[in-house]
Simulated scan of single mutants.
Amino acid sequence: MTILEQVYASGGDVIIHTLELTCPAWDAPILLCKGFEDQVCVTEDGRTLTFIASGIDVALPKKTNSGAQNLTFAIDNVTGEAQKKIDEALEAGATVSLVFRTYLGSDKSTPSDNPFRAKVLGGKITGSTVQVTAGFFDMINTAFPRDLYTVNFAPGLKHL
């Protein structure tokens, strides 16, 4: 049983959800945490990051065998900053990456569970809220076998 599972079962500690959004078109990543206070946490690779308190809501993917593992989250976009960042990423044609980490209020020196890394698949803006969907791994649309036997990979094919 992991530390996070023990907290879910018995309570007694605060769970801090954090999001790190990065894009090559942005000068700095977007660092958000759920709650009313900014949180200073250490990532799994030793970086100390300050996550800005925000009105975010995270819907974790269901643990099923469906092959669709999507994380959905909503950001309260009161200042319009999320809209500006989305426009910058669209103009540059760059992909946005997401890292979702969970910390305990009593121990912010390391994530309490393995971080989820995903690629942002899409989003929509409704009023003052930005809703974003990110996918972990698209198993359904993955080719099999993964190595494609083309003339460049296997030159002998052109003689068949």
Rank of each mutant, 00 (worst) to 15 (best):
R47G: 02
L121P: 03
D147L: 11
C33R: 05
L21Y: 00
S128F: 12
L4R: 09
R146A: 14
K62E: 12
A68W: 05
Q69M: 09
G80D: 03
A94Y: 03
Q39N: 01
V78C: 03
H17Y: 09
T150G: 13
G122P: 04
D27T: 04
T102K: 14
L32Y: 06
V58E: 06
S66G: 08
A68Y: 10
N152T: 06
A28M: 04
L157V: 07
L157A: 02
L4F: 11
G67P: 09
P24A: 00
V96P: 05
G46I: 00
P145D: 10
G105N: 09
I16V: 14
E88V: 01
V58K: 07
C23Y: 02
A53P: 02
M1S: 12
T79M: 09
F36I: 13
M1Y: 11
S10D: 08
D138N: 15
G122S: 15
P155F: 13
S106M: 03
Y103E: 12
S112H: 12
L21E: 01
T79I: 02
G12Y: 04
K158G: 01
S128Y: 06
A154I: 13
L157F: 08
V130A: 15
T110D: 06
K84C: 00
S112M: 12
G55S: 08
V78A: 14
